[in-house]
């Protein structure tokens, strides 16, 4: 496995691992029992995909999935900042997932045609899950946007808050370019076009206005994060750090 493929695989894994952790924070706190279960199902879907990717990335560098998940500090995490943003109210949680799902589905579809057989196999499993995730978050966004004045306002506020984190999803750099050139990763422009299409369609249905592109946060892929990631990792890693090698 090349260094670039390793970096690329870790990026895919980190987005899913951190989003999974955020969604799992809703466990036992969902707005209703049924949604609580829906969110934890989804957290487990993301975690399952993250584990496959971490295992694959780890094989090349002699590390287990656990070592990668529990042993890396903030600066070694390369997830986009969008997924580490706090759950906020339910509109924030749904908008965050919607913006990610609209990217994750076309990405996974593209990866099924990857020249890397392992990534293609992992993506093939993820496509079905991602299709349902996008449906779930889209339906909720439409309910919020086209619901009451308050739900509309909250969805609007969440979109405005999180929009600044969407630019990072489509960033390209030497690693991304090398992956596209090798036929491992799909073209980012195609993913962005699919994302635009989904976002415009669903926002129109939700009677929500698409925010204007302004300042876009960046840095996540280089390990520069918002202040939230440190707290997530403290939560996620403190047991393994306190009891290294413990098993139960």
């Amino acid at each position: 496995m090349s260094q670039a493929l390793n970096t690329y695989t870790l990026r895919l894994a980190d987005d899913l691992l951190i989003l999974s952790h955020r969604l799992s924070e809703w466990c036992g706190h969902g707005p209703i029992l049924e949604e609580d279960i829906a969110l934890t199902n989804r957290a487990l879907d993301h975690l399952g995909e993250a584990r496959n990717l971490l295992t694959y990335a780890g094989q090349a560098i002699g590390k287990s999935e656990d070592e990668l998940a529990y042993g890396r500090m903030e600066r070694w995490y390369t997830n986009v900042k969008l997924v580490e943003q706090p759950n906020g109210d339910y509109a924030h949680t749904i908008v965050r997932s919607f913006l990610f799902d609209a990217y994750h589905l076309p990405l996974a579809e593209g990866l099924t045609r990857s020249t890397d057989a392992q990534l293609a196999a992992i993506a093939a499993k993820a496509v079905k899950e991602a299709t349902y995730h996008l449906r779930h978050s889209s339906e909720w966004l439409v309910r919020f946007g086209d619901g009451t004045a308050e739900s509309h306002q909250r969805a609007h506020a969440a979109l405005a808050d999180l929009w600044t984190f969407t630019g990072e999803l489509f960033e390209t750099d030497a690693v991304g370019d090398a992956m596209v050139k090798a036929g491992v990763a799909p073209e980012m422009a195609a993913i962005k076009a699919a994302w635009n299409n989904t976002v415009d369609t669903v926002l129109a249905q939700a009677t929500l206005e698409r925010p204007v592109d302004g300042f876009m946060a960046t840095g996540g892929r280089k390990g520069l994060h918002t202040e939230h990631l440190g707290f997530i990792l403290a939560d996620m890693q403190h047991v393994t750090r306190a009891y290294p090698g413990a098993s139960w």
Binding site: E34, I37, A38, N41, Y132, R135, E139
Partner: peptide, 13 residues
Amino acid sequence: GMAIANARDVYTR
């Protein structure tokens, strides 16, 4: 629609 989606999440896991 929500009933079917919830049923999917609650009863077909």
